[in-house]
C-alpha cells in the first residue's frame, strides 16, 4: 500500500466498486478481445443487477469496452458514444448462484470477427478479479501483465513454460493452474513483473502441448 491508495484513485463517481471497478471489467474484456468491439452482450448479477442504474455501472462497463480508464470524463456519456461508434450493446439481468455479488459476464464480438466471453467481479476499491475466459476458469486482477497459457495437461508443460520465462529474465508474481479434467485442456494464469517481450510469446506458442498464449497487459 502507498499513500496514493489512500488519497486516490482519481475516478469518476459515485462508487469505486460499482463504477470504477466496472470500467476495469469492461476494459479487461476489450483487452482480451484484442480489437475494437462492435457487439457487446453484458449480463449483470447480484448487486450489479440490482443497483446498476443508480451507480452508472452500465455506462462504466461500456466505457471500459471502448477502452476508457476509470477517470475518463466521457464515462457519463458512454452509452451515447457507443451508439455513435457502432458498438451495439445489450444488458441482461441474471443471477449467478455462487458468484461474488458484483459480477458481470461480458460477451464481445470484434470488428474482425474475434469473440470472447469474460466473467469477472468487482471486489472493492476499484479492484477486480477476472474469473473466467471463454469457459475456462482463471483468476487475475489485471494489475500486472498477465499471460494466459492454454495447453494440454501433460507432464513437463508447466516446467517448460516457466523455464523459458526464467531464461528471459521474467519474474513470476503469481501462478495459477486451472484444469477442468485430468489430461484435458488446461490454462495457466501467470502474472509477471515487468514487460513481456513479443518473442517470448511467440516462443512459448511453439513449445510442445501449448494451444495458445495470450498476453493481457496491465490495465
Amino acid at each position: 500500500m502507498n499513500v496514493f491508495d489512500i488519497i486516490g484513485p482519481i475516478m469518476i463517481g459515485p462508487s469505486s466498486s460499482h463504477t470504477a471497478g466496472a470500467v476495469r471489467l469492461g476494459r479487461v474484456a476489450w483487452k482480451i478481445l484484442g480489437e475494437k468491439a462492435v457487439k457487446a452482450k453484458i449480463m449483470l448479477s447480484g448487486s450489479f443487477a440490482e443497483t446498476y442504474k443508480g451507480h452508472g455501472t452500465d455506462k462504466a462497463i461500456i466505457a471500459g469496452i471502448m477502452g476508457m480508464h476509470s477517470d475518463d470524463e466521457r464515462i457519463k456519456n458512454a452509452l451515447t458514444l457507443a451508439k455513435e461508434n457502432g458498438l451495439d450493446f445489450s444488458f441482461e439481468l441474471i443471477q449467478l448462484p455462487d458468484a461474488h455479488p458484483n459480477t458481470a459476464r461480458i460477451s464481445l464480438t470484434g470488428e474482425n470477427g474475434a469473440e470472447c466471453t469474460v466473467q469477472g467481479c468487482s471486489i472493492g476499491g476499484g479492484n477486480i478479479l477476472v474469473k473466467e475466459i471463454n469457459g475456462l476458469e482463471v483468476s487475475f486482477t489485471g494489475q500486472y501483465n498477465t499471460l494466459l497459457v492454454l495447453h494440454h495437461d501433460k507432464p513437463g508443460t508447466i516446467a517448460a513454460v516457466t523455464n523459458f520465462m526464467a531464461y528471459s529474465g521474467l519474474n513470476i508474481g503469481n501462478f495459477r493452474l486451472s484444469r477442468p479434467k485430468k489430461g484435458g485442456e488446461a490454462v495457466m494464469t501467470i502474472e509477471v513483473d515487468g514487460e513481456v517481450p513479443d518473442y517470448l510469446i511467440q516462443s512459448l506458442k511453439i513449445l510442445p502441448n501449448i494451444i495458445n498464449v495470450i498476453l493481457i497487459k496491465a490495465i
Partner: peptide, 21 residues
C-alpha cells in the same frame, strides 16, 4: 454531490467519503 452525479473525484480514502478532505 458531484461524485453522485458521476463527476471526477479523488477517493479519500473512498468515493463515499470523498468530500471531507
Amino acid at each position: 454531490e458531484y461524485n453522485a452525479a458521476m463527476g471526477k473525484i479523488v477517493a479519500a480514502p473512498t468515493a463515499g467519503s470523498c468530500g471531507i478532505l
